[in-house]
């Protein structure tokens, strides 16, 4: 599904990713763990197409197609969804309006018919109920005045609605209490399917108790330095990242 080859990325002359290689298969949930500053968030932004990053070398293939030449909205239409670590606030634009605009934009880009309003509302309500999002929240301006947990739930709501094929969760657990973490994780787990892949970026193992990964990658200094099964996360939890930091220094 996703194949990253020798990705080298810099921002303002600072090298962040140093020849990163990564493959995520259809139906797979891959976790990326690593110390702060290892380039985890950069990876998520580069896949989604944020402008500030300069890709010096390498490619990112989604279903065999290089996404690096695409605009962020084209990538979204191609199935990439990034759940932001810090979701943005858009004053004056009701969440409902935003959801409808994005859903129809993507449907249009894929040559599908727009949803009728009743259809749309039905879908939103179903997803909102599951994520315990109250209706009045949907009427409020997107993310404006939302708590950390509400913002994250709104991200997962969008994911559920847009039905992307490749989902990136960037530190989705940050700022969540146990209850919110459970709700968000259940939302994500409900979306797991054989034709959808996930890349779960996290600093802590905690999230992976709720969203159990198929593979765990350790990232350090802009590279994947170790790959293993879910037990690797527990190992990291016990020993910390010190081993990997040392390996760079050497």
């Amino acid at each position: 599904m996703l194949e990253i080859k020798n990705l080298i990325v810099q921002i303002e002359d600072k090298r962040i990713l140093n020849g990163l290689n990564l493959t995520v298969n259809k139906g797979e949930v891959a976790a990326i763990m690593g110390p702060n500053g290892s380039g985890k968030s950069t990876l998520s932004y580069v896949i989604a197409g944020k402008e500030d990053y300069e890709v010096l070398d390498g490619e990112i293939l989604l279903n065999g197609e290089n996404v690096l030449e695409m605009e962020p909205d084209q990538r979204a239409a191609a199935g990439v969804f990034l759940a932001f670590q810090y979701p943005l606030e858009i004053p004056g634009v009701a969440s409902m309006t935003f959801l409808k605009a994005t859903l129809n934009a993507q449907r249009k880009a894929r040559g599908e018919a727009e949803l009728t309003t009743p259809d749309f509302i039905k879908r939103v309500n179903a997803a909102a109920t599951q994520l315990e999002i109250p209706k009045d929240m949907l009427k409020r301006a997107l993310n404006v005045g939302f708590s950390g947990g509400e913002k994250k739930r709104m991200e997962i709501l969008q994911m559920a609605l847009l039905q992307p094929s490749f989902c990136i969760l960037d530190e989705t657990d940050s700022g969540l209490d146990i209850d919110a973490l459970r709700i968000v994780s259940e939302g994500v787990n409900a979306l797991r399917s054989s034709d959808r892949a996930f890349l779960v970026i996290t600093h802590y193992q905690r999230l992976l108790n709720y969203i159990v990964p198929d593979t765990v990658h350790v990232m350090s200094s802009g590279r994947i330095v170790k790959t293993g099964g879910k037990e690797l996360a527990l190992e990291l939890e016990a020993n910390g990242y010190a081993d990997y930091r040392d390996s760079e220094a050497a």
């Binding site: 989604a48 197409g49 944020k50 402008e51 605009e71 962020p72 909205d73 990538r75 979204a76 239409a77 990439v80 969804f81 990034l82 932001f84 979701p87 943005l88 606030e89 858009i90 935003f98 605009a101 994005t102 859903l103 934009a105 993507q106 880009a109 969008q158 847009l162």
Partner: peptide
């Protein structure tokens, strides 16, 4: 904000 909207599929 622009990137966020574009990530969700809206054109510039």
């Amino acid at each position: 904000q622009m990137f966020y909207c574009q990530q969700r599929g809206l054109s510039e």
